[in-house]
Design a binder for these strands. Structure first.
Lengths: 266, 266
DNA sequence: GATGCGCGGATCGGATCCAATTCATGCATG
DNA sequence: CATGCATGAATTGGATCCGATCCGCGCATC
């Protein structure tokens, strides 16, 4: 191993930090600080930031820097609906091919989820869902779905923490699994759809509440200078302001969405 | 303007060249040649390649370089089905909100498509479809769909050229538009679904035929060696082969799919 | 006292230079 | 004659240096 380039390592590290929420929305990612922390030059850091920019995880602005791209409320809702559409489709396609082994594996995952940390829960949640869809034979779509899951995950985490929604989710999972065992495509997809959309409503509500409670993002000032104590999550500097709250419906957290993908077609 | 970095310019240029098919699947993108041709150093080229790698357009391999990522037959089929699912969903959501102005605009686009080049046709085709979905109020999904369109486009182009499928497509479009005018959600989505999947079958078949006809990919490499005359699409030279044809069903053109997005989760 | 301007630190983007890796060719050897 | 290994060119990846841009601060001016 260790065959991969430094850019890839940096990109993976930053990706994890963003997806786990260690780097909150809107946080500025300074090249210098990161390169210093990770012991590499700024070049691989820059490449990593560009990569993450293409993935939509950060917003790059020329000569200003990169900030962790947040997801607006409307977009969050949209993503959850998107998730519901994809998952019901995949489940519908997969059920006929589901074998006992697959279902048993899924059940094992459910049992694991009974007692685990919140971080583990997220990963297991994805594994459970993916286990049900793998037989659909659509790896490309499955990968797109995985990415979608990842992007929603961090918001879902805070939501679960607040609402203690895990028991409900577990019950849903068991029900869905049972309907899959019964090969009841109609009811299974309906239950799945309800499961996802149900989360959606409460999720959007709790995220909204959280943002209302602290409308001014707690941008932290950097200070990579402070060397006291072991800095676990080091380089992170708040960034120059930017509350260009584009009025209108739904409040977006960060201006940048996916910018690099935006191109004008003649 | 001109406020964007050189990396962004290079990325956009390469993107267009790949999506239009100027750079065929499997072509090696050499940093040195590109930087020389575009008059920049290798650094912004590298960043652009990494960006495109994150988008899945090229496959980056450490210390080996980047090649234009092809789409395997199975994956192509999958993408078209994916497209059908997204488009029917969006149309379904949009129809209630479609106003006469939207429908008239769509009809104008159809008329434009009657007589235009193949390049223009692709762009107009997207604009027509997008016009029908915009009212769904799902910009994020619409953007994802646009990307999906772009990736299929180049294969569709050759397909249309071979099969002369444009008249059929036009008829489909007119029918779909009429059903939208009638607010007949059921029939409209059904017609749309058939329209897309119908293309799918013949598309996959023709791509397969094309690949069977020339199984050994004419790998070319980019580069601007020939200085005579205005070289619009830089010269092309063969490249190290690599036909690690993983047996199994469906032949993949290029090993790399979207690699940078692949990460092992503990 | 408010406003416009210029300067300087901080940060980013790009170019050049150097190290690391891969592949191919050719030679030695069994 | 086939096979394994060394050596070299070609190419990529990373580090350092330099110019460009942005932002905040202070000062002059009205």
């Amino acid at each position: 191993m260790a065959r991969q380039s430094a850019s890839a390592v940096v990109a993976q590290l930053l990706r994890e930090r963003i997806l786990t929420g260690a780097y909150p929305d809107g946080m500025a990612l300074r090249q210098e600080a990161l390169s210093q922390e990770l012991g590499v030059s700024r070049v691989p850091v820059r490449e990593a930031l560009r990569e993450l920019g293409a993935e939509g995880l950060v917003a790059n602005v020329a000569y200003k820097g990169a900030v962790v791209a947040g997801v607006g409320l409307g977009e969050l809702r949209e993503r959850v609906e998107y998730r519901a559409v994809l998952e019901t489709w995949l489940l519908n396609a997969a059920i006929p091919f589901l074998e006992d082994a697959d279902l048993d594996a899924a059940e094992a995952i459910i049992r694991e989820m009974e007692s685990c940390t919140l971080e583990e829960w997220s990963a297991l949640n994805w594994r459970f869902h993916a286990a049900l869809y793998r037989r659909a034979g659509k790896p490309f779509v499955l990968d797109a779905l995985r990415q979608l899951h990842e992007r929603i995950e961090r918001y879902l985490r805070v939501h679960l923490q607040i609402t203690h929604g895990r028991p409900k989710a577990h019950a849903d999972h068991r029900q869905i699994l049972a309907l899959c065992r019964a090969k009841d495509v109609q009811r299974a997809t309906a239950a799945l759809n309800a499961h996802i959309l149900n989360v959606s409503d409460t999720l959007v509500a709790s995220v909204q509440a959280a943002r209302d409670h602290a409308p001014s993002l707690p941008r932290r000032r950097c200070g990579a200078s402070a060397r006291s104590g072991g800095a676990d999550v080091p380089s992170a500097v708040p960034l120059p302001e930017n509350h260009a709250e584009g009025g209108g419906a739904g409040q977006d957290s960060v201006p940048g969405g996916l910018d690099s993908a935006k191109q004008a077609r003649s």
